[in-house]
Design a protein around this nucleic acid. Structure first.
Length: 415
DNA sequence: TTCGTAATAT
DNA sequence: GATATTACGA
């Protein structure tokens, strides 16, 4: 009946489609590790199309129509056709993300499925399989230097065009949205911004819950103000990667140390897109804390007693320290991250010494737990850099060579 | 408006 | 427990 008529054109479509699929498969082949499911899906699709083409099964024909032809919308059968395939895929995905695929699974979306398939040609990664996406994102992440805790992968985008009005605004873009609003305001600069500049793209650090929205509760704790400002949502976390931290240190150095530097100045010097004063301020706060705490120890305590302290800025420093620090600074320029040395040195000496405090002689040897990296951001820890800077800073105070040097890189500035 | 600090969330 | 965000006062 109509069949015959339709079939002809369809067949044509199939061939083309099959070719496209094959082409697709070749492309994916390269990433077979990353996109095993995609590969499989494509292969299956090819096979299905071929079968249909050959006319082996009537059922398939129906399906095929839907699939290949764009008319699909009209035909019911189509659904069935693809559904199975999807389902097959879905289970795999489930392993890593259930929800993702559930959506697709719905019969109603069959239509969508089709679309996805087509899209797959364009974006292998995204659509083909959720699992792949994740994997990919993972390895991509590893590469990234910093992340403004953006939102999860693109997956969302494709999936829910319908649902997500939020995102649609930006199109592919992501997080900026929350950020800007929530944050003070300067963010605006960042607006779409993202850390495009030097820093590579930004993967979500904790892809995990990143979905900010959920956290709506976030506000709860704090209070109401926030709502006024923006949406009640809490801003996404920014993870301070090594690179970012380096910049921070560099800026700090230029500004004469953590004590003298102000968040705004630091931010300006850092020249990082999307970085807000609040973020810098927060990081600075942490940095100062770390820097100071350790200080207390002053290995030299013994010496300290004997040696007169010297006030630098607000800090008391031992002459030696001070000299060293200064020198360090001078030289510091050479070594990238080192600036810290300067700053730290002084501090270290500082507080503790003041005999006034009962203080404490802390065995400086200990590393501070403080700067350790948090589980959240693993990212770059490995980086060869291990920014000494910070560590030094801390140790610096201690100055004692031995301990300082070793000290571990454990502390990662990062997060 | 910015900064510093404390409280809070993740 | 550490880190980042938010709130609040100076």
């Amino acid at each position: 009946m109509q069949f015959s008529e339709k079939i002809q054109p369809q067949k044509m479509g199939f061939r083309e489609y099959i070719e496209a699929l094959e082409d697709e498969r070749r492309k994916i082949q390269v990433f077979h590790r990353e996109l095993p499911l995609s590969l499989e899906l494509v292969a299956q699709a090819i096979e299905a199309c071929r079968q249909q083409l050959s006319g082996t099964t009537t059922e398939y024909n129906l399906n095929g129509q839907s699939e290949c032809s764009e008319q699909t919308s009209t035909d019911d059968p189509v659904f069935e056709e693809f559904i199975p395939i999807k389902k097959r895929a879905s289970p795999d995905c489930d392993e890593e993300d259930d929800e993702e695929y559930y959506d697709d699974g719905e019969e109603q979306h069959s239509h969508r499925n089709k679309i996805q398939k087509e899209d797959s040609t364009n974006n292998n990664n995204n659509n083909s399989s959720c699992s792949t996406d994740k994997k990919k994102s993972d390895w991509l992440r590893s590469v990234q230097l910093w992340n403004p805790d953006p939102q999860p992968p693109k997956e969302d985008v494709p999936r829910k065009a319908s649902v997500v009005e939020v995102k649609r605004s930006i199109g592919g873009a992501f997080q900026p949205f929350h950020r800007e609003e929530s944050t003070v305001g300067k963010v605006n600069a960042s607006s779409s911004s993202l850390p495009t500049a030097k820093t590579p793209s930004s993967p979500p650090v904790p892809a995990t819950s990143s979905t900010g929205p959920v956290s709506t509760g976030g506000n709860a704790g704090s209070g109401g103000k926030r709502e006024e400002k923006g949406q009640g949502q809490r801003k996404q976390r920014r993870c301070w990667s090594q690179e970012l931290h380096k910049r921070f240190l560099h800026a700090l150095q230029q500004l004469g140390g953590a004590d003298s530097a102000t968040p705004k100045q630091i931010r300006e010097l850092m020249k990082v897109d999307g970085l807000t004063n609040d973020e810098v301020k927060s990081h600075l706060q942490k940095f100062r804390l770390h820097t100071r705490r350790p200080t207390t120890m002053i290995p030299n305590s013994a010496n300290s007693q004997t040696a007169p302290l010297f006030l630098v800025g607000n800090i008391f420093v031992q002459p030696q320290e001070y000299a060293a620090a200064t020198a360090a600074i001078a030289t510091s320029t050479v070594s990238s991250g080192e600036l810290t040395t300067v700053t730290t040195a002084p501090h270290a000496a500082i507080y503790a010494p003041v005999a006034t405090h009962p203080t404490t002689i802390v065995p400086r040897t200990q590393t501070h737990p403080s700067m350790k990296k948090s589980p959240k951001c693993n990212k770059l820890e490995d980086v060869s850099d291990h920014s000494h800077s910070e560590e030094r800073a801390n140790h610096g105070e201690g100055n004692s060579p031995a301990s300082s040097s070793s000290t571990h890189g454990t502390t990662s500035p990062g997060c």
